[in-house]
Computed example of a mutant assay.
Amino acid sequence: MSSQLFEESHGASTIIHDNESGYASGTSSQDSLPDVYFSKPHLKFLNQQLQKLEPQDILRWCITSLPGLYQTTAFGLTGLVTLDMLSKLDGPIKANVDLIFLDTLYHFQQTHELVQRVRSRYGTTIHIYKPQGVETAEEFTAKHGEKLWETNDELYDYVAKVEPSHRAYSELQVKAVLTGRRRSQGGKRGDLDIIEVDDAGIVKINPLANWSFAQVQDYVNANDVPYNELLKMGYKSVGDWHSTQPVAQGEDERSGRWKGKNKTECGIHNPKSKYAQFLRKQELQRQEQELSQAMQRVSVDA
């Protein structure tokens, strides 16, 4: 069952009861308890408290509180710092957090080399997801046409990133994910919370939301964290080779992504993109049609 953000804090606790105690528990036979439950007031309270903590303490809270926890990463600096911090957490509970990497088929060679270095260094399980039905850039072009990122960038984001992420979440039964987003990256990330819940009920945690690029870089240097060689060439945020450029002095960290376009997110963290809204509209229409058909069947049976 997917994680859920409930609009109200009452009601859910009255649905499930343990036959002996009158309360729900982890061993109850009923299966209708949500895996992760936040009311809006609870979510606001947690953000207020976690805001005061260091990233390592936020990560400790995550591994003790959130089932189905994974880390989504494109192997940017912040994600690598998170991975290194997880590997060094002490205490009785060990951080066994797998990585999810979306291989768009258009990553830089340096990014693929970094993936191998991360595997060797940390031994972390990495789940790699590619666009559905293709294995190479040539196959992607044959299926979707030349330079889809130019002819229809929102469709490109969907087939190369959004759909593979949804498939990963479904197949791996993901309930919560650690992301590498920070407020100092600029754009729509300027008012980022530590914890968010998306429309699908996935809990997203941004453990380094408060950190600056300088803090991230200092941690990388102090802990000898492996990083993308492109960062030595003026890049600060690395995505696909066709839409990533070095960053000029004084520019936002992510200004090298989609240069010249009014765009700062690829769709994974932007549910309000036109293509996402189109898909949501289709899904709502499908649900309405199923409901109508069900009501018709009930009417006939009656």
Rank of each mutant, 00 (worst) to 15 (best):
Val97Phe: 11
Phe101Lys: 10
Asp103Pro: 02
Thr104Gln: 08
Thr104Lys: 02
Phe108Val: 07
Gln110Trp: 07
Thr111Ile: 08
Glu113Thr: 10
Glu113Leu: 08
Val115Ser: 09
Val118Phe: 00
Ser120Ala: 13
Arg121Phe: 08
Gly123Lys: 12
Ile128Cys: 01
Lys130Glu: 00
Pro131Arg: 01
Gln132Cys: 00
Glu135Lys: 15
Glu135Asp: 08
Ala137Ile: 07
Ala137Gln: 02
Glu139Cys: 05
Phe140Asn: 14
Phe140Ile: 06
Thr141Glu: 12
Thr141Gln: 08
Thr141Ile: 15
Lys143Val: 06
Lys143Asp: 03
Lys143Trp: 07
Lys143Tyr: 11
Gly145Ala: 15
Glu146Cys: 14
Lys147Ser: 04
Leu148Trp: 14
Leu148Ile: 05
Trp149Pro: 15
Trp149Tyr: 15
Glu150Asp: 15
Thr151Gly: 10
Asn152His: 13
Asn152Thr: 06
Asn152Glu: 12
Tyr158Cys: 06
Val159Ile: 14
His166Glu: 13
Arg167Thr: 04
Ala168His: 00
Leu172Tyr: 13
Gln173Cys: 06
Val174Gly: 05
Val177Arg: 03
Val177Ile: 13
Leu178Thr: 05
Thr179Ala: 05
Arg181Ser: 15
Arg181Glu: 07
Arg181Ala: 15
Arg182Cys: 11
Ser184Met: 02
Gly186Leu: 09
Gly187Ile: 03
Arg189Phe: 02
Gly190Ser: 03
Gly190Asn: 10
Gly190Pro: 00
Asp191Ala: 15
Ile195Arg: 04
Val197Leu: 07
Gly201Lys: 10
Val203Cys: 13
Lys204Asp: 03
Ile205Pro: 00
Asn210Asp: 12
Ala214His: 14
Ala214Pro: 11
Val216Arg: 03
